[in-house]
Amino acid sequence: MIVKGRVWKFGDNISTDIIIPGKYLRTLNYSLWVKHLMEGLDPAFSSKIRKGDIIVAGKNFGCGSSREQAVLAIKLAGISAVVAESFGWIFFRNAINNGLLVVECPNIVKYVETGDIMEINVIEGYVKTPRKILSIKPYPKFIMDIISLGGLTEYYRRKKHG
């Protein structure tokens, strides 16, 4: 799995409250989540992104509330992957379960800036920025299976019926 895209860089401890504030949760209007993506930091963010862009962040990305809408908003906005130094425990699970590529990469924020083009190669285990190539840990097979099937829903259906 190879992903290439333009980078948006954020800092440490980006909480799910920042990614999608609680007041937008009582709806199933998915486009509302996309519209308010990252509103806690940049209310205009969703109008700036292009399909395939990559979010890069520091430590503990997606910490806080378990709201899956944070992952869904990122995925539906067209973000292809999130690369962070580390992830909130539940966010990381939610991302994999919903088929959003999340890559842990210590020190990444030092080697990439907003606007750079970056490449992620999950199979060969590296990320490539204009400044550096950094290695990443491979996922166990069943995690890759879940991601490549688009998430746990399809994984369950295949297991049950396939």
Partner: peptide, 29 residues
């Protein structure tokens, strides 16, 4: 399916906060 589920760890259990899909998968499987 709530991040403060670990509160229950005070009672000697393994209590994990998860997302909605984990909960749905747990309910099903």
């Amino acid at each position: 399916a709530d991040s403060h589920t670990p509160t229950l760890g005070a009672l000697g259990v393994l209590a994990l906060g998860v997302g909605a899909l984990d909960a749905a998968y747990g309910l099903a499987a």
